[in-house]
């Protein structure tokens, strides 16, 4: 029987929800034999927007870009460690740009057939519908998306894997 998925991508942004998504992706890859990539996007688009809005000075843009790079390395290392715990091979990918576009491009270029995302909270304001990055990624994904909304369930499953 064919594998249900060949290439799984999990988007990591440092939130608890995205780290739970990382664990879910490890479970999926381990149980289906699919390849696994964890991706962090250094949101340089947001940094440019903050400079345009004159909230950031150009020197802050560069400083925060370095901070985001360091955040990305830390979060990806964390997911790598989780994968190693379960003897699951994982590819780490850190890229700069707009979150939505970079994920979409990566999915298309790398034949990703499942995108795993951390849970999307309830809509508390109309703005949430437009601004939530995970929600936009989910809506524009060219492949099936698995949303992880129950962190505790995933923790339990991960522990028992």
């Amino acid at each position: 029987m064919e594998r249900p998925f060949e290439n799984i991508l999990v988007y990591i942004n440092g939130s608890e929800e995205s780290l739970a998504a990382g664990m879910a992706a490890i479970i999926m890859a381990k149980t289906t034999g699919a390849g696994l990539t964890a991706m962090y996007v250094v949101n340089t688009r947001a940094l440019s927007d903050l400079v345009s809005a004159r909230i950031f000075l150009p020197m802050e843009q560069e400083e925060y870009r370095r901070d985001l790079e360091a955040d990305g390395d830390r979060y990806l290392r964390h997911v790598e460690k989780l994968a190693q715990e379960k003897d699951q091979k994982i590819t780490l990918c850190k890229i700069s740009g707009s979150v939505q576009n970079e994920i979409k491009d990566h999915i298309k270029k790398n034949n990703i057939d499942l995108l795993v995302l951390g849970g999307i909270g309830g809509i508390r304001s109309r703005r949430d519908e437009f601004l939530n990055e995970a929600e936009r990624v989910m809506r524009s994904s060219p492949c099936p998306v698995l949303l992880i909304n129950d962190d505790e369930f995933i923790w339990d499953r991960f522990e028992s894997l």
Partner: peptide, 18 residues
């Protein structure tokens, strides 16, 4: 704090838009 750059940027971006 310095190790929460991502969340810091998210809040600033949201405020900029609002």
């Amino acid at each position: 704090p310095p190790d929460k750059a991502g969340h810091h940027i998210e809040i600033l971006t949201e405020l900029a838009k609002a």
